[in-house]
Amino acid sequence: MENNTFFSGLKAGMSIAIGYFPVALTFGLLAKTAGLSMIEATAMSIFVYAGASQYIALSLIADAVNPLLIVMNTFVVNIRHFLMTASLSEKLKPEKRWIKAIYSFGITDESFSMLATSKNKKITTAFTFGVTLIAYGSWVIFTAVGHVVGANLPLFLQAAMSIALFAMFVGLLVPSMKGNRKVVMLATIAAAIHCFFYFTELLSTGWAILVATLISSVFVEFIYAKHRKTSELIYSREGE
């Protein structure tokens, strides 16, 4: 229980908040150059809260693309969250529906990865709120700050910080990979498929991540399904 409190959630979410800092700052800065006011830019971070699609929206706004198309694009880029929250629902402690409806707003690539790889077998509502609140706060606040001061950050630091979110993903993935061939396979196959879509330009990033994740998860599960038949009893007990 000790590691499942609101405060430990805040602590775990701190690395997300740090990772969001440069990304939100840059978003605020770019929003300014795309012609959005500080209110408009910050409102996007408050109400949409999805980094990649917000960046894409900015470039489309700058190109004066039809707003309806921007909305559709946002949907395509963010539909992957459906997979994530479906996957997460098993790991979350039972909770009232309307409370889940509130914190589901805070599920991003980063908070999902953090919650899903958490050592806690079941995650409490308090822990989830801790992780999502500090991340969300960082995203919103630093969007506004970026709109005001972003350009003043030294260039070499801006460049270095662009790696932050990826470094966080690595930091979340690697510990689970150690001594677990299934995790290594899952990550490697999904990465390879995404690379394939990236270089062939067959799918846009949002779809590519979705499809790569699905293929890898299904494929690896079927390989291990054979193995499971032999140890069905152990598995079904573990799943209780």
């Binding site: 997979l83 990865s113 899903a116 999904a190 990465a191 498929i193 998860s217 599960e221």
Partner: peptide, 26 residues
């Protein structure tokens, strides 16, 4: 069980797809 197995795989697959190739092109 096969569905919940697949859902449990998703975090690791997502991380792989989020890291590569994006990390190379920051």
């Amino acid at each position: 069980p096969i569905i919940s197995g697949i859902l449990r795989n998703i975090p690791y697959a997502v991380l792989g797809a989020l890291i590569f190739p994006g990390i190379l092109f920051v």
